[in-house]
């Protein structure tokens, strides 16, 4: 598609959608949202980019092959499940790491659940983009 309106709007929209997807990802920790939906949103940003600027532009904008993105996502999710081994708990059990302050007193706490969610995000983004690129290249 070669439309100036779409191309101009896309420049702004893609950035906005990507930021929104990260917001959705982090929000999913305590509220509705999460890695899956955020990954879909991010994938829609690249799909939009591909529509406006073409497949090659979208691929070079992504920089990493989407397949690798998906695989690294699965690896991250798997690793977050393995984290429990250092604490002597069962596989995939939740672990919280306190960064600043104490957990009870509004300190900053980071959990392996978050890493799992980021893994899901990357996997969904990579898998959907693999598919979109494959279908688009074929047609």
């Amino acid at each position: 598609m070669n439309s100036i309106i779409l191309q101009t709007a896309t420049r702004v929209l893609v950035a906005l959608i990507l930021v929104f997807s990260v917001y959705m990802l982090l929000r999913g920790h305590n509220y509705p949202g999460g890695g899956f939906i955020a990954g879909l949103i991010a994938a829609s940003a690249f799909a939009l980019f591909a529509m406006a600027w073409g497949m090659e532009a979208a691929q070079s904008a992504l920089r990493i092959p989407p397949g690798n993105l998906a695989v690294s996502g699965v690896a991250l999710a798997g690793l977050s499940g393995l984290m429990a081994i250092f604490y002597g708990d069962g596989p995939f059990s939740g672990q919280w790491l306190t960064l600043i302050g104490a957990k009870e007193e509004d300190g900053i706490v980071i959990s392996n659940v978050l890493f799992f969610d980021i893994g899901v995000y990357l996997t969904v983004l990579g898998a959907v983009l693999t598919l979109i690129f494959a279908l688009e290249e074929a047609s």
Binding site: A127, L131, A134, L135, A138
Partner: peptide, 13 residues
Amino acid sequence: FGLLAFALALIAQ
């Protein structure tokens, strides 16, 4: 979603 997407790509091929 994954399965049907795969099936769609396969049908196209």
